[in-house]
Design a binder for these strands. Structure first.
Lengths: 234, 234
DNA sequence: CTAGTATTCAATGAATTACTTGAGTATATG
DNA sequence: CATATACTCAAGTAATTCATTGAATACTAG
């Protein structure tokens, strides 16, 4: 039956996409690439992979045409081939959160082992920010802050946190946020702040959730935006 | 590093979803289940799998909580666990179509080997339907027709086509549609109609595309719907 | 042209996954 | 109660995928 051959061929192609996604490490790599372009070395480091292994995973992602590589001098910089890839990742994340009870349990356990990280929810935060009773920190890399952040938030990338401690209020509550519930930048930031005697909390949701709820997002405009587009990682 | 363990655990969970999707046959099974519930036997037959093999694929889909099973007498009827699964599938399909050139080539080649199947696009169809110059056939199973069809379309499931030939006009153009570009029901229908001397064409898009374009869809109401829910395959 | 760095490639063995076969379970029918 | 039907399970083999290792390539700086 010719129909069967056709269908087999077509679904084989669809499966190229899903097979590329069928690995935790590759999902993590894609998640990172959703935030912006990265070199192999950086990707390997952030995911805990060996460079050779990361390179191979990137190769399979590339074979599925989910990402593209660009050689820049000594580095190979990878970026998503299509914005739709982010959508696909969120769809997976959403489904996983909705259907897999294990995820909730894992996060709960993680929070338990980090007992100082009492998360702050959106509603509470909005109130406190509006009343000026709180200092809000965006601890993601600067480019991501420029691409969109919660109004009133300060741009304090995690790497710069130590240098900027002097500028932060010791008499006021500090709330840190990052990309979302599975991003640990804010967790790290809050731990460091607490260790220094600040009163810090973490907002559970990140910019993605904030945005998708239709809440206001401030964007840095043209100049910064195009700079981000052209140079990527600074 | 505790963060790493957490991330590994979380991405491991996300990967449960994508691993379940990482097989052409499982994608096909899910596609079928997007149309409505089905028994193992029916699924096996439509996908060309052995029953035991289909059962195992269904088992892995179930382990990823993408589908659910319900025993009804002698049959086990499977259905999607969540509407979001359809969204995920379309996301994959969309990305695949956008990025994988092979898909276009495969469809083109299929159309070449079925040269009589000149497809009809939406715009042309709308004009012709409005002017009454065309008879529109929905050749999907009856339940799917009931769940939503293009206004003015007749319900003529492919299996019943032969018996209903007498009711179709020989002096007028006939256009058949089904689920979408990768569904071959309409292709088959057009071939049979042409063999009988009808002037038949196939609409390239299916109900899914029609719907997602915001075009009007007629739905059969309560009675028929609940009948569909309770009995499934007739 | 040499040395050094970033990345990829190729080869290996370990681990997973796919499909088949045949047996086993549950439900309906005579 | 025996039999047929629809499905699942277990075991085995073939095929694929994985991470690791060490070598090869590509580019830069001196």
């Amino acid at each position: 039956m010719r129909n069967r051959e056709f269908r087999d061929a077509i679904y084989e192609q669809f499966a190229r996409i899903s097979k590329a996604l069928a690995s935790p490490k590759r999902l993590e790599l894609l998640d990172l690439l959703c935030q912006g372009e990265r070199s192999v070395e950086v990707l390997a480091k952030s995911t805990g992979l060996s460079v050779a292994n990361a390179s191979q995973h990137l190769h399979t992602l590339r074979a599925a045409r989910l990402i593209e590589a660009e050689k820049r001098g000594l580095f190979v910089v990878y970026h998503l081939a299509d914005r739709q890839v982010c959508d696909l990742l969120s769809a997976i994340r959403l489904l996983a959160e909705a259907r897999l009870a294990d995820i909730e349990q894992i996060t709960r356990q993680f929070m338990k082992s980090h007992p100082n990280l009492e998360p702050v929810d959106r509603e509470t935060l909005r109130e406190r920010v509006l009343s000026g009773a709180v200092t809000l920190l965006d601890v993601r890399p600067k480019e991501e802050y420029l691409a969109g952040h919660i109004p009133g938030a300060l741009c304090v990338p995690l790497e710069e946190l130590e240098e900027r401690l002097d500028g932060l209020p010791r008499d006021q509550e500090i709330v840190a946020y990052c990309r979302g519930p599975y991003c640990v930048l804010a967790v790290e930031a809050v731990e460091r702040l607490k260790a220094r005697g600040f009163e810090a909390h973490r907002m559970e949701d990140g910019i993605v959730e904030w945005r998708s709820l239709g809440l206001p997002v401030e964007e840095a405009v043209s100049a910064a935006e195009s700079q981000h587009r052209n140079r990527g990682d600074a």
